[in-house]
Amino acid sequence: MKRLMTRENAIRWAPMLVLIGLVILFTAINPAFLSQRNFARIAIAAAPALMVAIGVTFIIVMGSIDLSMEGTVGLTAVLFCFAFLATGGTLAAGAWVAIPLILLLGALIGLVNGLVHVRLRIPSFMASLAIGFVGTGAAVLVTGGDIVKIDDDTFRALLTWRIAGFPLMIYVVAALALLAWFIQSHTTLGRNFYAVGGGEELAHASGLNVRRVRIMGFVLAGVFYAVAGILQVAKLGQAESVSGANFMFISITSVVVGGVALWGGIGGIWNTVVGVLIVNVINNGMVVIGLPDFLQDGMLGLLVILAVVLSTDRRSISFVK
């Protein structure tokens, strides 16, 4: 039994246990929590956040950080609406072109992010924060502060068409999470993320083109942010420059709470899925049991500190900045 209680096992299973514990707790306080309708509500709230969180997971696994998501999601959501309207306004009439276009744009923003970080040798948190500001600014610029609406029943079917009680977008998100897992576990790129995160100098010494891997990571993250932008539009039927607001805090909290170590190399997509569920179950549960929603950011703030503290091996680091 003693071997079961290792640090690695605790870190691996703790987030899952926390999630189950939270579900039991909220159900005990208000049985209405444990209903299919409520679960669908949680899933819808979590869907765009999960895409953002999965994107940033690749980066955090490399030991870097990406804070550009608010700007990227905002800009892609807004431009998606414009592209959608410009290409016909309905999926059937050819507006589907907007989807690959915006995914490409996400990749491009990620590329710029990666290039600024790697080529100019700027720490990723600052490079991506600045790019995020630029993204939000660009979103304000193109919208002039207005809201852009999309009214296409075929596209909105992502939200309105339900299979077994869950909207179509949940299945899309699940499929993309599987894809992300595949990239992480079964491709060279995915392995390389872990190699860089586990020890950059070692990875470099063994012949890996670390800079390219880093840039690729940011490109991949950018694509997932763009997906989140599109889903955000599908969810709300509209976009504005602040469509990406609060994603930075929520997604990083989720990733860290799920057990992905900020130092890199540890954890992965499944941790992120569990983390996003924990954060959204807390947000939803607090409303269900009647706590005011302004407590959420404070709760999440304390939670993220706790999670980082628990997942940090204090013997292996000397100081942090």
Partner: peptide
């Protein structure tokens, strides 16, 4: 940051979240 070894950009982001909650409340 210093005692719990949380990088400052995360710890201050988290404290910022607490501030935001207090302000809303």
């Amino acid at each position: 940051t210093t005692r719990l070894f949380v990088p400052s950009f995360i710890s201050t982001l988290a404290v910022g979240g607490v501030c935001f909650s207090v302000a809303q409340w």
